[in-house]
């Protein structure tokens, strides 16, 4: 795993912002990669772009194709949800040697009934969104299917925090690295 982060450091020459106080040597033994994207209201382009960019990073780290695809799908769907329903939001990706956590936080209208939103085919997206090929009511079910753990914390009128985790290790995850 140390190799994994040495490679990251060699490729990017960057230390994640929360590790800047540490020397490079220390960083290589306390591995953590954080990526952050701001997604504005109806910023559909950024949603797609963030998925492509994280995917590229994971490919450079040498991860398995199958797990990269699962992670990219989670990021794409979650980021699109923020762009469609959340008025302002952040997408954060935390990578450690054991797992990857994808977090989206928005200040949108919240989800009144999470169980209903998890149902395939249920959607509150507008006609305009559906014309773009989204709003089929498959976003959250898709995210759930691709992640090992999914937490949704939502409050109507305040916003939604979504955390999806994918494990790299055999015993917990659906696929290993």
């Amino acid at each position: 795993m140390v190799f994994f982060f040495q490679k990251w450091y060699r490729l990017t020459g960057r230390i994640p912002h929360n590790r800047k106080d540490m020397a490079v040597d220390t960083f290589q033994y306390t591995p953590k990669i954080n990526l952050e994207f701001a997604i504005g209201e109806k910023d559909f382009f950024m949603a797609g772009e963030s998925a492509s960019r994280v995917k590229k990073t994971l490919q450079q780290l040498g991860m398995k194709q199958e797990i990269i695809k699962r992670i990219s799908i989670i990021i794409y769907e979650a980021a699109m949800n923020v762009a469609i329903h959340g008025s302002q939001g952040m997408l954060r990706v935390f990578i450690t040697p054991e797992e990857i956590m994808i977090e989206t936080e928005d200040t949108g209208g919240g989800i009144p009934d999470v169980d209903l939103a998890m149902k395939e085919g249920y959607s509150t997206a507008t006609h305009e969104i559906r014309e773009m090929g989204f709003g089929a009511g498959m976003g959250l079910p898709n995210i759930k299917q691709c992640s090992d753990e999914l937490k949704i914390d939502t409050k109507v009128g305040v916003g939604t925090l979504l955390q999806a985790t994918v494990y790299f290790t055999d015993n917990k995850g659906k696929t290993s690295r």
Binding site: G48, Q65, F134, N142
Partner: peptide, 27 residues
């Protein structure tokens, strides 16, 4: 449908679609 592509399409296939926006390309 973008979500359908993400959910059901296997890797390394040819996509056939009438959507022409940037999302198709990202998908």
């Amino acid at each position: 449908l973008i979500s359908e592509m993400l959910a059901s399409a296997s890797s390394h296939v040819l996509l056939i679609t009438s959507l022409t926006n940037a999302h198709v390309v990202h998908t």
